[in-house]
Amino acid sequence: MAVYDKRLISKLERKANLIRQHVVRMIYLAGSGHPGGSLSAVEVIVALYFHVMNIDPKKPDWPDRDRFILSKGHGCPTWYATLAEKGYIPVEELDTLRKLGSRLQGHPDMRACPGVEASTGSEGQGLSMGVGMALAARLDRKLYHVYVMIGDGELDCGQTWEAAMAASHFHVDNLTAIVDRNMLQLDGPTAHIMSVEPLADKWKAFGWHVTEINGHDFKDILRALEKSKDVKGRPNLIIAHTLKGKGVSYMEGAVSFHGKAPTKEEYEQAMEELGGKA
């Protein structure tokens, strides 16, 4: 089992905390957005961008780069904040989220923002796009890996399962999907809206290599992501068990913060909890 340097883990943890502060501020300033599903996804996206993926922010179109797709496009504040911290876009630009003329659209626009690999927002399409990118790598004999984060609400979408079947059928092994399993969707708990369990068994039955992790534990995340590169002949699924709204007490596990901005008082409290400046 891989052992990770304490300094690496604490660096990633600091980054994750900084990104949570960005996310809360961005959505507060925008006056709308999706804090819950942004905050649950932070650690996985930070791990990908700050340790796992082979990327160069100075060359966002480098053909050999690893790709990341945020199929649950509403979580994009976390993606934008990570891209900014990584140097793709200026950090100051984060405050333009959802404003007229901004490159940071309410849902990701691959033609607007450097580093954004796919336009998503209408749910359930990102995994299919990822299959296409992974097949392109095979045709071009390139070694890049494609990562797709899907929301657990997207497991309701038929297209997610069409993509799951196709990835397995085409023996795509340079593809890793991560389910942000925060157990909530817009209308309530996923279990009440549409039952998706037994989730691991479903993906296994579709021919995927499946790993379950704590999606807020960097050691768990790094281990799973690195192991997924070694799986041959089939695609990888990581079920990342997460907490919606993670890091802000009143947002944690709160369906109400799926898609609304904090008030001024809530914003100030959140920043205090995250150790940032309001």
């Binding site: 796919a118 990102g126 299919s128 796009m129 299959v131 296409g132 990118m133 790598a137 045709l139």
Partner: peptide, 11 residues
């Protein structure tokens, strides 16, 4: 959407 992914990689 698979076609889109292939096209995004130059196909």
């Amino acid at each position: 959407s698979i076609a889109a992914g292939l096209a995004a990689c130059g196909k």
